[in-house]
């Protein structure tokens, strides 16, 4: 069993629905916490249905970048274009309903079952009737292989299962873009692959994904584009082959020598 590769793109069975990911573009994105700029003039283009992996040392601004895309943290200047339109000009709640996000620590609702975790935003944000929301949630859980665990609370699930519930919760909203913030960093090592495979599958099915990760194997095999960030800037961007086999900047060479 290996991680998905790009050659398997046309492998998708018709029974599994495909996604229609939107394009995402960051132009001169600058973000700050108070007076401290943690992201400076970042430019990035993510084509519809492609996967972009962001790598880099801690404190490089990777997570901040993701939080700027869905405005969990408001950018200071620059722009975020979702499907060609400025994300900064729309109501942030409406914007976030179009962008799925998966967190390092899952952030599942502990007093809700897996099913209720997925269904909550469906009825409260999408205004689906509750019965329909539960039905839809059940299908989403089945898609991530957790149909059997629908009625378990998060504390009764393993980390890998919790993260798959979190992915189902985000997918249920039918997002145009998925953001992954170190989604496998908190998992036991044997459970990492299951989650990465699931993510790779989403990419193959046409989801636009922005993935902050320390899994270099995943970035190399699944990403259409890899971005290396350090100290709040994009240092190098290109295909996985460009970055991993032929790193140009000294900082990336240094980083790769430490993590590989």
């Amino acid at each position: 069993m290996s991680l998905a590769s790009n050659t398997s793109r046309n492998n998708t069975a018709p029974s599994i629905e495909t996604f229609h990911g939107s394009s995402l573009e960051l132009t001169n994105l600058t973000m700050a916490y108070g007076d401290i700029e943690v992201l400076r003039n970042v430019n990035l283009t993510v084509k519809p249905g492609t996967t972009t992996c962001i790598i880099g040392p801690s404190g490089s601004g990777k997570s901040t970048l993701l939080r700027g895309v869905n405005r969990l943290h408001e950018p200071k200047s620059g722009d975020v274009l979702l499907a060609g339109e400025s994300a900064l000009k729309v109501n942030p709640d409406i914007l976030r309903a179009r962008i799925g996000m998966v967190f390092q620590h899952f952030n599942l609702f502990p007093d809700h079952t897996a099913l209720e975790n997925v269904a909550l935003a469906l009825w409260s944000v999408k205004k689906m009737p509750k019965a329909e929301a539960r039905e839809h949630a059940r299908r989403c859980l089945a898609e991530v292989g957790l149909a059997e665990r629908a009625d378990h609370r998060p504390r009764d699930l393993s980390g890998g299962q919790q993260q798959r519930v979190a992915i189902a919760r985000a997918l249920a909203m039918e997002p145009e873009v998925m953001l992954f913030d170190e989604a496998t960093s908190a998992l036991d090592p044997e459970l990492v692959k299951g989650v990465l495979n699931l993510m790779a599958g989403l990419g193959r099915r046409g989801m636009t994904m922005l993935v902050v990760t320390h899994e270099m194997g995943f970035a190399r095999k699944v990403a259409d584009q890899v971005v290396f960030m350090d100290e709040g800037e994009v240092v190098e961007a290109g295909t996985p082959a460009d970055l991993f086999d032929n790193p140009k900047s000294e900082r990336l060479q240094r980083f790769l020598s430490e993590v590989l």
């Binding site: 459970l191 495979n197 599958g201 193959r204």
Partner: peptide, 21 residues
């Protein structure tokens, strides 16, 4: 054992879990 969960995932349809083998 965490391996139980891995087995369970492998048993699920490979398309569902996104692996291609």
């Amino acid at each position: 054992s965490g391996l139980k969960e891995v087995n369970e995932l492998d048993a699920a349809s490979p398309l569902i879990t996104g692996s291609n083998t």
